[in-house]
Design a binder for these strands. Sequence first.
RNA 1: GAGGUUGUAGCUCAGUUGGUUAGAGCGUCGGAUUGUGAUUCCGAAGGUCGCGGGUUCGAGACCCGUCUUCCUCCCCA
Length: 458
Amino acid sequence: MAQKPAIPKGTRDFLPAEVAKRNYMFATIKEVFRRYGYAPIETPSFELSTTLMGKYGEEGDRLIFRILNSGEKMKKADLDALAQDNLPRFANSLAEKALRYDLTVPFARFVVQHQNELTFPFKRYQIQPVWRADRPQHGRYQEFTQCDVDVVGSDSLLYEVELIQIFDEVLSNLSLPGFSIQINNRKVLSGIAEVCGVSERIIDLTVALDKLDKIGEDGVIDELKAKGFAPTSIEKIKPLFAFEGSNDSKMNLMRSYLASSEIGLKGLDELAEVFEQISELGLQRGELIFDLTLARGLNYYTGAIFEVKAKDVKMGSICGGGRYDDLTALFGLKGLSGVGVSFGADRIYDVMTELELFPKELNRTLDILFVNFGASEAKHGLKLLQQVRNLGLAAEMYPSAAKLQKQLKYANDRNVAYVVIIGEEEAAAGMLSLKNMETGAQEQLSSADFLTKCGQLF
RNA sequence: GAGGUUGUAGCUCAGUUGGUUAGAGCGUCGGAUUGUGAUUCCGAAGGUCGCGGGUUCGAGACCCGUCUUCCUCCCCA
């Protein structure tokens, strides 16, 4: 055998059974999005490098797939930059385009570009693949699909509430047994930084705090020390480690902790409003948790921050999102607040596969198989086959008069529901045998009765 | 981007301190008194051992490189 072909790391092929499951998942997600008034849009797989670069921080830039200039454009390569060891500049001269890294930044670009054609608040959803030059791991791919819902042009907290409901509804509809919807607010984090006297270092602070459940209190303190935080600041952070209990009691603790921070209290007010509305509306299977340590690296968030984790599985966050007040400002449109969340389709798929949550009938791509006994019997069968297809059923005839054993095995492997047998005996009697592949039961029917039954069964 | 790890038949894996034609289970294909699957029995096919180089009389086993897998960090869906 020749050298086996391969696909790049972190990418996957999807077999028919997998596509069926993925389509089911996407259909469930879209249906919820639609009912909340979001309409689908699509944007190109690749954008101009300038659109993407610098929007995700230094780490993010490194993970953006660049598209090499082709033809004459290759001559634009900045060899001086290479000689000076300025690799970023060299790379920019080589690649003017890049694969999209997420759907949010392209969306911001989209909104600014089409601002005069849109009605605000503009609600859109977008389900498309994104690419990251990350190192593949469990639940981490270089090509994966995000399902984003965003609304821009309103700062109403109604949308935070709505997005939480969408989290809950989508994941409940997908039968996830349990999941936590963690929420925090960037203003609260700003307040903490203010109280600790490190306002200008909020990113370092929150990144360290974000790791609390992973590396523990000492780990966080060590990291802060390593980053050069003053002992007095670290002392002021310590009370946060005792931050436990119900959402209400956490809110109370934070009210006194942030008493001196105007912005911090504003963040708490926003959270309180969301909690109140959600507790009135209720959630199906999700649990809304105020998680003070939730920070998320994306530095464009300005208000609410969300993250969703599935319970009882080893998997990172399956959804994330938040409010951003200035994202479109990066492309020249100020004063437009947005909030949105993203469902990680591939992780949700992995979780659902692990928990066996996909409906079993999804791998049925054929309802009825007609057994082939040779040209003369097949003739009659082919007419019936056409009528069955007209009823909307997936049906086909086995292509050759192979042994019955083989044809039934084919039906079995394809998970066919019913097999129609028209052999010499049946043809002579003007009947057909209908075999239920699940029970093995078989009955003789006239063509008319068979078609009636088809209409009832499916 | 840093460190570690993995790669043998379609799949899951054996393969003894380097030694003839590299094995198993499952799956696939064929057959078992002529028309009955998923559970029986018999048989067959299928691998230049990820790829490239090196050491050796001799490499699936050892060394180097490379790609890939999974893991930790980083970051994230």
